[in-house]
Design a protein around this nucleic acid. Sequence first.
DNA 1: AAGTGGTCTAGACCACTTG
DNA 2: AAGTGGTCTAGACCACTTT
Lengths: 248, 248
Amino acid sequence: MDDALSSGRTGVSVLYLEVKRQLIADIQSARVAPGGALPSESELAKRFKVSIGTVRRAVDELVAEKLLIRQQGRGTFVGRQDRARFMFQFFKIAGRDGSREFPTVRLHSFAKSRASLEEAQALKLRGTPAVFRIHNVLTLKGRPVIHDHIVIAAAMFPGLTKTIFERRDSTIYALYQTAYGVTIVGASERIRAEGCDELTAQLLDLPGGTPVLRIERVALTFNQQPVEYRISKVDTQDVDYVARMDPT
Amino acid sequence: MDDALSSGRTGVSVLYLEVKRQLIADIQSARVAPGGALPSESELAKRFKVSIGTVRRAVDELVAEKLLIRQQGRGTFVGRQDRARFMFQFFKIAGRDGSREFPTVRLHSFAKSRASLEEAQALKLRGTPAVFRIHNVLTLKGRPVIHDHIVIAAAMFPGLTKTIFERRDSTIYALYQTAYGVTIVGASERIRAEGCDELTAQLLDLPGGTPVLRIERVALTFNQQPVEYRISKVDTQDVDYVARMDPT
DNA sequence: AAGTGGTCTAGACCACTTG
DNA sequence: AAGTGGTCTAGACCACTTT
């Protein structure tokens, strides 16, 4: 993170996008660690040889994308995958009354095996590569309501073990970020209703065939690269999946 | 839409928010019609006695909220509730292969009656007010897959009849906007899985009790005011509800 | 050619945090 | 008091659309 922008002013300027790309590169390569402070805006303006307004525009977008956090009077910091952010951005389950609560997570199984074709496709991997396969049971208000099946490429998380996974002190996405430098920036989900399978019935203590929500999530890092494929089965007798449709 | 900003610079400035409020008021009161052009940015800057950059910031946000549409070289226009926008912002159902298609809509029933307690609460109305109650069947690729139950306050749509409703030439939200000046700006949804009821089974040609997606939507106009309460039952054998989780 | 939005600049002044 | 982000200004220049 040292020099002015190299881009040869390619006809169509959009200087601020070049600044933004540089900042993303600096975040991605961990030249600035999660939680760490960026240089001040005037400093960045000097380095990139642009006006401070142009830096602000680039930073504005990164703040909107939650990669950076501004604090007036203090500075601008690299965003962290903490609990609050997880609850806000990724955990869409709420009680009938609208209550939102961080779930208790119990690891049911952790294994290394080969991806199915469907899983490999979702993760954009070729063949049937080695993956970690994790089953979790999430509890809300003392009742098991979610059965998560998580699949991640072994190649992206070298040396991951059951112990490391269990001993994490925050969210799974925080583990990805701090231990493997993999920042989840978004996800896409596909949801449907189905009669629940046997494993889910057992884990959630439901009669077989009870209608459950099936949420298929692909979590993405920079450049839309898939990181995690997760299938959640949700017992929606007491909870809902809540979505807001603000103009995108 | 005539004078400079009246706000007495109340300590904390945020001038651009004042401009934004003014512009919203102008849109809401239909001083500028849907599809119509706003005055140019320099014109607005003069009227509001602010710099053009401040106008731009206000307009930027309204564009992000899809209330305004900018077209370089042409002008800035008030957003319309057309099919494209409906598909993009509100219609979240896609085929297994990801295909998105505008559904064929068949009116099943149109009636005026009283709101249930639950409906009144969702629409933030007191007592059990008169409502229009509409059942629609939506078809994709020749198969009925969605059963919509729509509830709207009669008071907000005076003179609405089955004929007016059926003869609309675009989306329901376009009808709200053009015929009643009610612009839908967002919605919140609660989703769960349940065994399908009898009416839905009949309309979607399903065996009773088949797991279906139940989507409860409250569509909102300005100031988060509820306009429409809609319960959609979706047969997710061939389609999914798709959601993107970009940082909000 | 005239008018619109789109980008960028250079700087003023304010609000807030820290030492 | 010094340093940071937050708002606002006044203007230059560019890209695009319309006449």
